[in-house]
């Protein structure tokens, strides 16, 4: 069934077939990765390579194991089968230069620390001396537009501000890879669009590799170089889709391009199959 659908999809998107390989040497590579919890098979045969500086988005209906895949990449949980390698080495535990932006920012931030102290946590963990921290914190907070709120506690900040703060804390890890788990899912539409553009400029500035899980199909197309579509029961890669849209992207013009609309149509059809 999937084979026919793939052919159909390709025609629709009018793009060359995407492959699991990336140009050049992969930064992260997954080979035959699977995960089973008791009798429940969550992921099966995940093969994908992610290149340095690439922006990869993951979509799929709920229960397809998107978040689980992100956790395996981070080293927070271990795959039951297959190998996950990061920079050519097997990924067994979290690496200091892989940061995660969690969806539930309210739980991920330390509520007893102010904005600047929250950013400081990552610097303290990296062993940066106190004297150097102050400037770095100011720089990071200004990057996410929170300079004026440095001394506020998370409970005094809006959802968007809290998520910005979490992003600043991740950047403090000086990451090579940022894993994002539906980071903007709980935010209102305007804030979400703003943060999408901010994350794009941060990523392109620092040549970070991004792995972005979302249930918002347009968001996946808007942000990604490539979109991984997962199908559920068990979670498998249904398709890898290249996004041939030019950068820098623009909330109005990019979203009006025919390629964008074609991809959007294709992904909607894909997800609707599982509703």
């Amino acid at each position: 069934m999937t084979a026919t659908l793939h052919r159909l999809d390709r025609k629709l998107a009018n793009t060359p077939p995407a492959s699991a390989k990336t140009k050049g040497k992969p930064l992260i590579s997954l080979k035959g990765v699977g995960l089973t919890f008791g009798s429940n098979e969550v992921l099966r045969d995940i093969d994908v390579e992610i290149g340095e500086g690439e922006f990869v988005c993951v979509i799929g209906p709920s229960g397809c194991g998107k978040t689980t895949l992100l956790r395996i990449l981070s080293g927070l949980i271990q795959a039951s089968r297959g190998t996950v390698s990061y920079r050519g080495k097997e990924q067994r535990e979290p690496a200091s230069d892989i940061a995660i932006v969690f969806q539930d920012y309210a739980n991920a931030l330390l509520p007893w620390r102010t904005a600047s102290q929250n950013v400081s946590l990552a610097l303290e963990a990296a062993g940066m001396p106190r004297a150097e921290r102050r400037d770095r914190i100011a720089e990071l907070l200004s990057k996410v537009g929170l300079s004026k709120h440095a001394d506020k506690f998370p409970s005094e900040m809006s959802g968007g501000m809290q998520q910005r703060l979490q992003i600043a804390r991740c950047l403090a890890q000086n990451p090579s890879v940022i894993l994002m788990d539906e980071p903007f899912g709980a935010l209102d539409a305007m804030t979400r669009q703003k943060l999408q553009d901010e994350i794009l400029s941060i990523v392109s500035e620092s040549n970070v590799t991004a792995f972005f899980v979302t249930h918002d199909l347009e968001e996946a197309i808007y942000l990604g170089d490539r979109v991984i579509a997962l199908e559920p029961n068990p979670g498998r890669i249904a398709e890898l889709i290249d996004v041939p849209l030019a950068r820098p992207r623009n909330q109005l013009t990019t979203r009006e391009e025919p390629e964008f609309l074609a991809l959007r149509r294709k992904l909607f059809d894909f997800v609707l199959r599982y509703e």
Partner: peptide, 29 residues
């Protein structure tokens, strides 16, 4: 302590002492 904070501590590679002193103790305060 919320499991998310545990994960944050693991991702930042805090050692046991830091986890107690910086995460668990203030969370339990």
């Amino acid at each position: 302590v919320h499991p998310r904070l545990d994960e944050v501590a693991r991702v930042m590679r805090l050692n046991t002492f830091e986890r107690v002193y910086k995460i668990a103790l203030p969370a339990a305060m």
